[in-house]
Write a protein that binds this DNA or RNA. Structure first.
Lengths: 172, 172
DNA sequence: ACGATGAGTTTGAAAAACAAACCTATCTCT
DNA sequence: AGAGATAGGTTTGTTTTTCAAACTCATCGT
């Protein structure tokens, strides 16, 4: 209850590393699949439930967490001859997860390919061209992964080395 | 042991959806952080352990899983006056996860920003320009998320609608 | 009033994660 | 040769989380 507790909690639950913060929310067996299905147009509790085969208490818990963290918002809807209910819709923040899913799909299709071929294909809505996920500069130039380096930002606490693709990690 | 079992198992453990396959491997509390640290140059069991605060039995299990699935490979090393040991190094497949981490960082920095600023910054190794993750065509044109659509591929089993950014998911 | 339906809760059993102690092979030092 | 030291794990017993199945609750059309 004291401020000390609040900040101690924050230190534990709000790590400085974005990967850790994002992972805290998304890195469990179900959350990613829930978001994936949301991008496929699923909004209803019972649809998530039947498509994923997820226990309903877990679904409740995950949806609550995702709503609290602003990935989903609840929006009322009503079927003909039905009571008003709440559907789960991606917010702007939720829709911004598309590149995460895109990157995941791309990796899965490349390195853990299924015998059936890709199940989802990313295309330009305007030209229909096939898309992939890549690093780009602000001026729109595509940079190959081998030419990407990762360095410490202001939030970095760690004394760890930058990642440089040429210099293989630590012990070559 | 019969073929039937094998394929039934495959159906359960090797879903057609790349998101599901990738998530199966990476979407747990620790795997993402292990891979993140690997990109920061960590290779040793004890370094993963002390940096992450992960129980060692869990770390063993995760590293085994990641080695089995080809994200890491074990490589022997020897410190001065030490016995030979095995380090864990990202394979090509593991290094190909960089865009996944990049996308995750970008989302976290944007929608769940820490008060300290980003902890890791992605730059061009050649020009130093700041990078972001985006969808691009094969000819290198950057496509905004709003102009990305996702359609069923050959592996799709589902009768679900394509994702189109304009047409808000299902219940607008 | 009555049953149907969607969206959850509750309950008790099974699986996974956890912390801490322990083990093991090889090294250095004596 | 024997005594630590150390990295990299296993083992053990407890706590959390997940799971499946049953149950509740509010509201609808009949």
């Amino acid at each position: 209850m004291a401020e000390k507790d609040a900040s101690a909690t924050a230190a534990l639950t709000e790590p400085r590393c974005s990967v850790a913060r994002s992972a805290q929310l998304l890195a469990d067996r179900w959350s990613v699949l829930i978001v994936r299905d949301a991008f496929r147009g699923v909004t209803r509790f019972s649809d998530f439930r039947s498509r994923l085969g997820i226990p309903s208490d877990i679904l409740t818990a995950r949806l609550n967490k995702l709503v609290e963290s602003g990935v989903f918002e609840r929006r009322p809807y009503r079927d003909d001859g039905g009571r008003e209910r709440l559907g789960y819709h991606l917010t702007e923040s939720g829709r911004a997860l598309l590149p995460v899913l895109g990157a995941l799909v791309q990796w899965g299709d490349t390195y853990r390919a299924s015998e059936y071929g890709p199940s989802r294909i990313y295309r330009s809505a305007t030209t229909g061209e096939r898309l992939r996920v890549a690093f780009v500069t602000e001026s729109g130039e595509v940079i190959a992964d081998e030419n990407v380096e990762v360095v410490a930002g202001p939030g970095e606490i760690d004394d760890v080395a930058p990642y440089r693709p040429g210099l293989a990690p630590s012990n070559p």
